[in-house]
Simulated assay, not measured.
Amino acid sequence: MHCRRLLLIITVLLLAGMPMLAIAAPAAAGAQLPALPDVTVGQIGDNPISVPLQTLLLMTGITLLPSLLLVMTCFTRIIIVMALLRQAMGTGQTPSNQILVGLSLFLTAMIMMPVWQKAWDAGFAPYLNGEIDFRSAWDLGTAPLRAFMLAQVRETDLMTFAGLAGHDTYASPEAVPFPVLAASFVTSELKTAFEIGFLIFIPFVIIDLVVASVLMSMGMMMLSPMLISAPFKILLFVLVDGWVLTVGTLAASFNGV
């Protein structure tokens, strides 16, 4: 009984409110909101760029910026050497990937700081002060980075990518196109990193061979040599102060810094 009364009251209230909604609807339809102006900021040639397109370009640039910074700096060589060192020691996931990446990022910042400082002083700081235009600032600001990358590039890699781009030779380092320079720099860094990793592997491989030979001579062929050699490799690495030695060697392996 109470439910029927409640439903009846709700129905009466809805029927009473329908005329008010019918009156308010035309009034709302007749009122027009002010139109937003067509805002355009920036130009490509003589054509203006709308704000949504600028936002899309900015977000795309921000997405690609970390990858470009990692590829065009010394981070590639450092992280590969660190990963090979961990594999040579046979410690599995110790240190973890986060620790290796963090150490590589800080070491990259320390090595690249003089290059970034030159780029800031030569190009970007004068541009922000209104002393030069953007084109001149870009050329002056990227010149230290190009010089750093050219100092690490191998001539064979540069000639290989120049041939792929359809070029013969370049009159000067400034004439090397940036895509050719970036590709040559990455391949040169990979080769150098694996060369350093090979040299790091040698003492650990010797320890593995010695331990395996001793175990075989004692007839303990069922015992894993890696289990016995792991403490000796860690002990050797600690005694020679391996982390400082590796970091110092990596920092000194870059030319033009």
Rank of each mutant, 00 (worst) to 15 (best):
A28S: 14
T192S: 13
A35H: 06
M216W: 00
L235C: 07
T187F: 15
L190Y: 05
A83C: 01
S213K: 10
G42H: 05
Q32A: 02
W120P: 00
F106G: 06
I79W: 03
N47M: 08
L21V: 11
H167W: 06
L199I: 14
L235V: 13
T156I: 15
E195S: 10
M113D: 08
L58G: 06
V244K: 14
A143H: 05
M226L: 14
F198T: 10
I111Y: 05
L164Y: 12
I10S: 13
L158A: 04
L53A: 12
L227H: 12
D133H: 06
V81W: 06
I206A: 14
D121H: 09
D157G: 11
V101F: 09
T169G: 12
A119D: 01
S172N: 11
P26N: 14
R86L: 05
F204C: 07
M220N: 02
A137Q: 06
T60P: 07
D168Q: 08
L84Q: 13
L107R: 03
I111S: 11
F201N: 14
D168A: 15
C3S: 10
T94W: 08
T142Y: 13
T63I: 14
A230F: 01
G45C: 02
T91F: 09
M82K: 05
S188D: 12
A183C: 05
R86C: 00
P203K: 03
Q117R: 12
F201Q: 15
L105V: 15
G256C: 06
I196N: 01
Y127K: 00
L64M: 12
M159D: 15
V210S: 07
V81N: 03
A119S: 15
T169W: 10
A29Q: 11
F198K: 13
A83I: 15
V81L: 02
P95W: 02
M110D: 03
G219M: 00
S188C: 10
A143D: 12
D121V: 03
L56G: 13
A109C: 13
L250R: 03
F161P: 02
Y127R: 00
L239H: 09
A83R: 07
V101I: 15
L150G: 06
Q54I: 02
L190A: 08
I49L: 13
L239D: 03
L36R: 08
S217E: 04
V41K: 13
G197D: 06
A125I: 04
M113R: 10
F194I: 14
P26W: 02
S229Y: 08
D46N: 09
I234L: 15
Q152L: 02
G166T: 02
V51A: 10
V153L: 04
P173M: 00
D208Q: 10
F237Q: 07
L36K: 11
G102F: 13
V247K: 15
L53I: 13
G90C: 09
S67W: 11
S224D: 15
I207Y: 11
T11G: 10
L239W: 01
I207H: 05
V39M: 12
T169I: 00
N97C: 01
D46A: 14
E195P: 00
A16N: 09
E189V: 01
